[in-house]
């Protein structure tokens, strides 16, 4: 069963449509990029896929389930990085990770926390409060939180925004490792190069619609069109 399927997905804020007839299928163990400019509708599609919003029309399914109705059942299968971090600012990094590991009922919390913090290169920041982290460090903490439940599917909304090139490369290495272990990864990004280097397939969104979808090499051959659309 495909991890993510959207068919004729629509959403509007009042009378203003922001997602129009989006059809997407993400296959098992692939890395899928949702590319577009600000306001293209990427984050809203992510939120519809997460079940945070009820679609105005069409359907969205995660592993065959409706994420809006089955949010709690899907929680253990889906790791999420939101556009806004959502980590409490006055908990320490270690407390944040331990809280999330416990919420996901993971055993050996101390060891799992140490492993996750090492994965995102934040062991040396474990005792700092979240508000004391830099923007890039917070993004890495978000990723560690998303990995706490050992998810089969990762939904990442701009996971590398604010990261320096080195941290960005390390993050992609980590995500490639997860994909090799069978995790399906869907991410949004503004950067075509990033999508080309990391994704198996991409969908380019423009004004709420999917303008182009296909394998990355196909996208590369349409680079001129992509650059016209997303700058």
């Amino acid at each position: 069963m495909d991890p993510v399927t959207c068919a004729g997905l629509r959403f509007a804020y009042g009378a203003s449509p922001v997602v129009c007839e989006v059809d997407l299928t993400v296959r098992e163990s692939e890395m899928f990029a949702l590319l577009g400019t600000n306001g293209a509708g990427k984050t809203t599609v992510m939120e519809l896929v997460l079940g945070h919003r009820r679609p105005s029309g069409g359907t969205v399914r995660l592993f065959g389930r409706d994420p809006f109705r089955d949010r709690r059942r899907l929680a253990s299968e889906v790791g999420v990085v939101l556009q806004d971090s959502g980590c409490a600012l006055d908990l320490t990094v270690a407390e944040t990770i331990r809280l999330w590991l416990r919420l996901y009922r993971r055993g050996e919390v101390a060891r799992a926390a140490a492993g996750l913090l090492a994965d995102v290169d934040l062991e040396h920041r474990a005792a700092l409060r979240v508000r004391q982290l830099s923007g890039g460090e917070r993004r890495r903490l978000d990723l560690a939180v998303a990995l706490c439940g050992r998810p089969r599917l990762l939904l990442l909304d701009e996971p590398t925004s604010g990261l320096d090139p080195q941290a960005r490369e390390r993050t992609w290495d980590l995500l490639r490792d997860r994909r090799r272990e069978g995790t399906t990864i869907v991410f949004t990004t503004h950067y075509l190069e990033e999508a080309e280097q990391t994704a198996d397939r991409i969908a380019i969104m423009d004004r709420g619609r999917v303008a182009l979808t296909g394998p990355v090499d196909l996208a590369a051959s349409f680079r001129r069109i992509i650059e016209e659309r997303i700058g």
């Binding site: 997460l50 945070h52 949010r71 709690r72 059942r73 929680a75 253990s76 889906v78 999420v80 939101l82 806004d84 971090s85 959502g86 980590c87 409490a88 999330w100 919420l103 996901y104 939180v145 439940g149």
Partner: peptide, 10 residues
């Protein structure tokens, strides 16, 4: 966004 984040926990 803490509440929204917690809703992803199950």
């Amino acid at each position: 966004s803490v509440l929204r984040r917690l809703r992803t926990s199950g």
